[in-house]
Simulated scan of single mutants.
Amino acid sequence: MTTPLLQLKGVHKSFGPIDVLHDISLEVCAGEVLCLLGDNGAGKSTLIRLLSGVHKPTSGEMLMNGKPVLFENPREASNG
Rank of each mutant, 00 (worst) to 15 (best):
Ser45Cys: 03
Pro57Leu: 06
Arg49Gly: 05
Val33Lys: 13
Ser14Ile: 04
Leu6Ala: 09
Glu32Met: 05
Leu37Lys: 06
His55Met: 06
Cys29Val: 13
Val20Gln: 05
Ser45Phe: 01
Met1Val: 11
Phe71Ile: 03
Asn79His: 08
Lys9Thr: 11
Ala30Pro: 08
Pro74Trp: 11
Arg75His: 13
Gly53Ala: 03
Thr46Asn: 03
Ser14Arg: 14
Ile18Arg: 13
Gly60Asp: 03
His12Pro: 07
Leu50Asn: 01
Thr58Ile: 11
Asn40Cys: 11
Asp39Trp: 02
Leu50Cys: 06
Pro74Tyr: 09
Gly60Ser: 08
Val69Cys: 08
Leu63His: 07
Phe71Pro: 06
Asp19Ser: 13
His12Glu: 07
Gln7Asn: 12
Arg49Glu: 06
Arg49Val: 05
Asn79Leu: 14
Leu26Ser: 00
Lys9Pro: 00
Met1Phe: 08
Cys35Lys: 00
Glu61Val: 15
Ser25Ala: 04
Ile48Ala: 11
Leu70Gly: 05
Pro74Val: 06
Gly66Asn: 11
Asp19Tyr: 00
Ala42Pro: 09
Lys9Gln: 12
Leu8Gly: 09
Pro17His: 12
Pro4Ala: 11
Gly41Tyr: 08
Leu5Phe: 09
Gly31Lys: 15
Lys56Asp: 09
Ile48Tyr: 00
Gly66Phe: 10
His12Ala: 03
Ala42Asn: 10
Ser52Asp: 00
Gln7Asp: 04
Val28Leu: 15
Met64Ala: 13
Ala42Cys: 00
His22Thr: 02
Ser59Trp: 14
Ile48Phe: 03
Ala77Ser: 14
Asp23Thr: 06
Leu47Cys: 05
Glu32Gly: 06
Ser52Val: 03
Leu5Gln: 08
Pro68Phe: 10
Ser25Asp: 03
Asn79Glu: 14
Gly53Trp: 00
Pro74Gln: 13
Asp39His: 13
Thr2Gln: 10
Lys56Ala: 13
Glu32His: 03
Leu63Pro: 05
Thr3Ser: 07
Glu72Gln: 15
Val69Gln: 04
Ser52Thr: 15
Glu32Ser: 05
Ala42Met: 07
Cys29Lys: 12
Phe15Arg: 08
Phe71Arg: 04
Thr3Gly: 04
Val20Leu: 01
Gly80Leu: 10
Leu21Cys: 02
Gly41Lys: 07
Leu6His: 07
Ser45Thr: 13
His55Trp: 03
Ile48Cys: 08
Leu5His: 02
Leu50His: 05
Cys35Phe: 02
Gly53Ser: 00
Ser78Arg: 12
Gly80Glu: 00
Lys13Glu: 05
Val33Arg: 12
Ile24Tyr: 07
Met1Lys: 05
His22Pro: 01
Pro17Thr: 14
Lys13Ala: 09
Asn79Gly: 13
Gly10Ser: 12
Leu47Lys: 02
His55Cys: 01
Gly41Asp: 05
His12Gln: 01
Asp39Asn: 11
Gly66Ala: 01
Leu26Ala: 03
Val33Ser: 11
Glu27Cys: 09
Glu61Lys: 15
Ser14Trp: 13
Gly10Leu: 04
Leu26Glu: 02
Lys9His: 10
Glu32Gln: 14
Leu8Ala: 12
Leu26Val: 09
Asp23His: 09
Gly38His: 02
Leu21Asn: 03
Gly80Asn: 12
Arg75Asn: 12
Thr58Lys: 09
